[in-house]
């Protein structure tokens, strides 16, 4: 049924007001602008503390145009579960008509999702609430000053994984949040990336139509945390896909579908060299990251049943 969306299909009307205090060139701002356009106007957003929350709701003003609820750092998923349950009760009591379908969306950062909010997220997914959870992943606790999180990739400098004689940035690999969601047997998970906006719309639209718990993992470039020039936000995001560091895909009814095929991959070095946070990496460390990505790509190709992500172009 669904025709491929193009840039021409994006609605003109803005649903996320400017005047917010997100940094120049913030990747999460691009994501929020389009996520809010893609959602129904009466959807309820439940937002964990983090960059997006503190920069968009400086009292007494807000950038949001949807019904929007602030929740603590660790429990956006619990708050969203409560909102969804309350909507059911309101229908049962006749306050809302039974056919009225109000969608609920939770939004949290990687710290608020991979780490401190993981228990609330697991509860939401396990109980089967009809909620879309979106994690915007800037790969560290940015709002409080670039501390590492479970989403920080191997090799990255952060203020708590410094670079010096003893340490050489993060030494653990990024947590597989999609794998964690899938272990809950949820009907829909997907990844999105701000360089690929029509793909974002198709996934948010689809998630809005599917009943039950859904997780969308969003790649979210961060200018001061990743140490690159603000003009390069989309370039960095696109390079992540072209190197296979990030793969745009969705898993629906246990079937994996890569939505941005990459016939020829670029070496990860081309991605890493765009970021100041990876500047210290040695050739061996870069090789280790390349091997990790090669394995990840082979795994996704296997699940996809064909080679959708090709070999590294020499």
């Amino acid at each position: 049924m669904s025709r491929t969306l193009t840039i021409k299909d994006i609605p003109r009307e803005e649903r996320f007001a400017p005047g917010h205090r997100m940094c120049q060139g913030c990747g999460a701002a691009i994501l929020m602008r389009h996520i809010t356009k893609a959602m129904p106007k009466d959807a309820i957003i439940v937002q964990a503390t983090g960059c997006v929350e503190v920069t968009t709701t400086l009292y007494p003003e807000t950038s949001w145009m949807h019904p929007w609820l602030h929740i603590a750092f660790e429990n956006a998923a619990a708050g969203a579960s409560g909102v969804e349950a309350a909507l059911k009760v309101l229908k049962r009591k006749g306050v809302l008509p039974p056919e009225k379908d109000v969608r609920v969306v939770a939004i949290g950062g990687d710290g608020g999702t991979f780490d401190i909010g993981i228990q609330a997220l697991s509860g939401l997914l396990e109980r089967g609430h009809d909620v879309l959870y979106i994690v915007y992943d800037n790969e560290a606790y940015m709002n409080t000053g670039i501390q590492r999180s479970g989403a920080t990739p191997f090799g990255a400098w952060t203020t708590t994984t410094p670079v010096g004689r003893v340490w050489h940035g993060e030494w653990r690999n990024k947590k597989d949040i999609i794998g964690i969601a899938l272990a809950h047997r949820v009907p829909y998970v997907a990844t999105i990336n701000p360089a690929y906006i029509p793909d974002l719309y198709m996934k948010i639209n689809k998630a809005m139509e599917i009943k039950g718990p859904k997780l969308i993992h969003a790649y979210s470039p961060c200018v001061p945390g990743w140490r690159y020039e603000p003009a390069l936000t989309v370039t960095v995001a696109r390079m992540a896909v072209q190197t296979g560091i990030w793969i745009n895909y969705e898993v629906e009814n246990n079937t994996l579908n890569v939505t941005t095929p990459v016939p020829k991959r670029k070496p990860v070095r081309e991605y890493l060299r765009l970021h100041g946070r990876f500047r210290h990496l040695t050739d061996e460390e870069i090789e280790k990251i390349q091997e990790f990505v090669d394995k990840q790509v082979a795994y996704v190709n296997k699940l996809a049943g064909k080679e959708v992500i090709g070999p590294v172009e020499k």
């Binding site: 007001a17 400017p18 005047g19 917010h20 709701t57 400086l58 007494p60 003003e61 807000t62 145009m65």
Partner: peptide, 19 residues
């Protein structure tokens, strides 16, 4: 004078703040 619970009643009001 402010709404109970720090509720913000004007959507998109950061437009007042020019960046």
């Amino acid at each position: 004078e402010v709404p109970v619970g720090a509720v913000i009643l004007e959507p998109g009001s950061t437009r007042r703040y020019k960046t």
